[in-house]
Structure formats: C-alpha cells, structure tokens
C-alpha cells in the first residue's frame, strides 16, 4: 500500500490487488498513513486467500472476475458491492490447534531467536495459521542467516500439516523490531 501511495503522490492512479486475509492490515496501514476513510474501499480489489497454490488457469479466472473492479479503481468509478472481501472470516479461533502448532514449531522458533529473530504464532481460524516473523538485531549483516518469510511459511506449513489436517495455509507477517 505504501508503494501505491508513493505512486499516487506522483500523480499516477494506482490499483492495489490484495488477498482478503490482509484486510485488517490494509485498514490499519491506511489509518497509519492518514489516508481518506474510504481509501481501502475505493482502491483495493480483494482476492480470496490463499493465492499461492493456484494454477495459472485459476489465477487467470480470478482476475477475469475482477477486471471490471480493477478498471473502476483506475478510472475512479463508483465501486460495486461485489468488491468487498470475497471470503469474510466467520470461523471461531481454534485455540487447541494453535497451541499444537506452537509446540510443533518451538524448536524452529528457538533457532530463529539464536539468530536475532523470532517466530510468534498468534491465530488459527478457518484453516489459516497466522503469526509474525519478528526480526530484531540479526547475527548476520545481510539477513542471510534467516530464511525469507515465504519460505518460512512453507516450512511451518510442512511441519504442522501432518498433525493438523485442517491446515490450509500459513500467513506470517514480517515485523522489523526497532532497537531501543
């Protein structure tokens, strides 16, 4: 969203396509950047999460369904109700699965902490395990001592799925901790 705001400030209308699981982050970022209250509603087109496992054909079909919404953003036309997040989250948090997942990744989190990062799992609902990769003062200068967030998501998914069959995806936010 920050890139879109940079481009808007340069006079370039910018449409943002985002997975609906990030809706709370989109609203929080919009508020942080002091954007108009309706910025997210008018400029973001949502896709159902996850998208990383789509075939190219399914990915194309999702865009085909939303191309009018993308045009609407670029042309500033009034948005239609269909642009709301595709899959509103309604399921209750699954605390037991969350605790199981935390126990499974305990050793992985410990190894990350040894390198100055941390893995914190915070939510499990509707098959999505969510958390944060917190990056503090790393033991390496170039960040190479910790794996990229998307690779870590895949690793956590591979570790947890054998124990929790309902797991569909893992979403980790990368958080940079500012030293005191």
């Amino acid at each position: 969203m920050r890139d879109a705001v940079t481009l808007e400030a340069l006079g370039i209308p910018t449409a943002i396509i985002v997975n609906d699981v990030f809706e709370p982050i989109a609203h929080a970022t919009s508020a942080l950047l002091r954007l108009p209250d309706d910025y997210v509603a008018k400029n973001v087109v949502w896709l159902p999460h996850p998208t990383s496992n789509l075939t190219d054909e399914r990915a194309a079909a999702l865009i085909d369904d939303r191309i009018d919404a993308i045009r609407d953003v670029l042309l500033g036309r009034t948005r239609v109700a269909a642009l709301a997040p595709a899959v509103p989250r309604t399921g209750a948090p699954d605390r037991e699965s969350l605790e199981t997942a935390r126990a499974i990744v305990h050793g992985l989190a410990e190894s990350l902490r040894a390198d100055g990062a941390d893995l914190v799992l915070s939510d499990f609902a509707e098959g999505t395990l969510a958390g944060e990769l917190r990056i503090g003062e790393l033991t390496c200068d170039d960040g190479s001592c910790i794996m990229p967030t998307d690779a870590l998501e895949r690793m956590v998914e591979a570790m947890v799925r054998p124990k929790i069959a309902s797991l569909r995806s893992v979403t980790l936010r990368e958080i940079r901790l500012i030293p005191d």
Partner: peptide
C-alpha cells in the same frame, strides 16, 4: 521505472 506510466496496478499474493 513506473514514473513514466499513467496508471499502475500493484500486488499481491500470499
């Protein structure tokens, strides 16, 4: 690279 553009679409994934 994008400054020369009139419109931009950005995203996405996960």
């Amino acid at each position: 690279a994008l400054k020369m553009c009139d419109i931009v679409v950005t995203g996405l994934g996960g």
